[in-house]
Design a protein around this nucleic acid. Sequence first.
DNA 1: CCTGAAACAAGTAGGTG
DNA 2: CACCTACTTGTTTCAGG
Lengths: 154, 154
Amino acid sequence: MDDTDRALLALLQHDATLSYTTLAGGIGLSSAATHDRVRKLRDTGVIRRTTIDVDPTALGRPTLAYVLLSADTWIGDDDTATRLRALPWVEEAHIVAGSASLLVKVRTADNTELQAVLRRLYDIPGVSGTQTIVVLDTVFERPTNPHGNPTTHD
Amino acid sequence: MDDTDRALLALLQHDATLSYTTLAGGIGLSSAATHDRVRKLRDTGVIRRTTIDVDPTALGRPTLAYVLLSADTWIGDDDTATRLRALPWVEEAHIVAGSASLLVKVRTADNTELQAVLRRLYDIPGVSGTQTIVVLDTVFERPTNPHGNPTTHD
DNA sequence: CCTGAAACAAGTAGGTG
DNA sequence: CACCTACTTGTTTCAGG
């Protein structure tokens, strides 16, 4: 993982349809060497997958909310994870420190559907309460920055 | 946007390197028709871009936290957005309802770096306080589900 | 890491219900 | 209008150095 790899990752994050020839031009290498590096990044798991970024509004889910789940038992187990995965509105689930146990990211069609999802979250065994943070507007969402932390060199 | 489009989106979310021939086989259409549909999904903005999913740990940012920013003035303006964008640790920023004004997703190398980012967030004009939710473990992160809400047909 | 060639996919054109 | 088959252009991928 050198600077060339990081440059490659940045280019591919921005547009993964770029040809190896174009990528090669961007980093000053031959197309074959570029190909080799990308293959290695895939094989080592740095690149987890090539995917598409879909507009949630176009999919009928313009409403976004973060829900903090409180629990009276441990809900960081596999069963809870399985139940959360079964809910198509849940995009992320994290075990968190603090008074809540779990943080989930939820996308729904509207507030009515959000309410229905909250009800389903309550139905998960161990869940004793929810605190919902409704997103009014998303300022930006972007991929993890591959470049070294700028302040490291201060 | 019919079921065929949604099936296409689901396939591409899972693996955007699939050839049109393979995609075509998955949805029972010719390669050219598949190509046409994908082009339309791109042109209409349903597919925002093709990108790679990079492991944040491999990029040296294994620590994840959500930070709620309180403000004593309005911080939903362009200047605040620009300042947040300038911080490479900030992956998402949302204007939220409730006592906080802004919710930001932050990835850092460790807790020390997280602390440094919090300090920078405080430096944004109008920010009067932060509440940090540290993620101990990510259960899952996945793309927006393209399929119709299962409970719609209940 | 490079050059170069073979296998393959993307993208285009023209035609059908 | 969405789909098909057939073709051209360009890209991926793999030798060998």
